[in-house]
């Protein structure tokens, strides 16, 4: 299924270097015994350093697939993904993924979970104290220091997600990939979490690619919202969110953007189900 190699380089090297993350005409098809599923059609996307990009689109349009490709869990069927101009091959903690389920390790307590990723970092390799110090700082950032010694099963859903966030931030990844991080939390907890997340983002200036189903979440967090078409996923539109941070999820301006984003999704659904008059 490989397309014939292009004789001309697509982009000049300086342009390549400008984007932190470059997704270049990436295609992904899944092949099983009975059928081929086209999850992503040629998809190109640049993410700048320090930018927060939210992927938004109908269920099954390939958002998680794209994150998995960037994380290196899967290989693109065609096309290439570059991080800092270097091709992405396999998982690595320069592009840390936060999962839909928290994926914390139940055999470790809270602080050991946060420290876990540091163990494999050269700077922290044999330095337990340094690891613990860094982990405590991160737990402080997500307001969970009193729970450092708790077991994972003793935490609430929102607390688990905050620990997962601390664990993902610990090795100081350049890119954070977040797949529907805060599902099924009540509105109050969510609003608080968004505030916290933005606070952390402003401080750490991470490049973030995240997926959400909630237009309010997208409007509240993103610099740019990328709307997908229904499967097979393609880029439909992009919406730039020009609001100062920190944003409040209940701000009317955020709500305006949210409405605009939701409207895009309705369009795609109508195309898919053919209900447009």
């Amino acid at each position: 299924m490989k397309v014939a190699p292009n004789p001309e380089p697509l982009l000049t090297p300086p342009a390549m270097a400008s984007a932190k993350l470059r997704i270049e005409r990436v295609v992904k098809t899944f092949q099983n015994a009975t059928q081929t599923v086209e999850a992503l059609q040629p998809m190109s996307l640049d993410v700048q350093e320090g930018e927060y990009v939210v992927l938004f689109g109908p269920s099954g349009c390939g958002k998680s697939t794209l994150l998995n490709l960037v994380a290196g869990f899967e290989e693109p069927t065609d096309g290439t993904i570059f991080l800092d101009g270097k091709e992405v091959k396999g998982p690595g903690n320069d592009r840390l993924m936060m999962f839909q389920e928290h994926a914390l390790f139940p055999w470790l307590n809270v602080i050991d979970n946060v420290m876990y990723g540091l163990k494999w970092e050269r700077a922290y390799r044999f330095r337990f104290r340094a690891r613990r110090k860094r982990a405590m700082e991160l737990l402080e950032m997500v307001h969970l220091t009193e729970f450092a010694r708790s077991s994972i099963h003793e935490l609430s859903g929102g607390m688990k997600q905050r620990v997962a966030l601390a664990r993902a931030l610990a090795p100081d990844p350049q890119v954070l990939l977040i797949d529907e991080p805060f599902p099924a939390l009540d509105a109050l907890v969510r609003a608080k979490l968004y505030a916290q997340l933005q606070d952390i983002l402003v401080r750490t200036r991470k490049t973030i690619l995240s997926v959400t189903h909630d237009p309010h979440e997208a409007a509240c967090l993103a610099d740019r919202v990328v709307v997908f078409t229904a499967r097979p996923g393609r880029l439909k539109t992009q919406i730039q969110i020009d609001l100062p941070r920190p944003r409040d999820i209940n701000d009317p301006q955020v709500a305006d953007y949210a409405r605009g984003i939701a409207a895009e999704l309705e369009d795609t659904n109508e195309e898919e189900f053919g209900t447009k008059p």
Binding site: N93, M97, F99, Y116, G117
Partner: peptide, 21 residues
């Protein structure tokens, strides 16, 4: 599989997978 993915994204080297994960 989520534990294996989490371990890999957190940079666990292959030799440490059996004992740590």
């Amino acid at each position: 599989p989520i534990y294996l993915r989490a371990a890999r994204t957190l940079g666990t080297p292959a030799y440490a997978m059996p004992s740590h994960i």
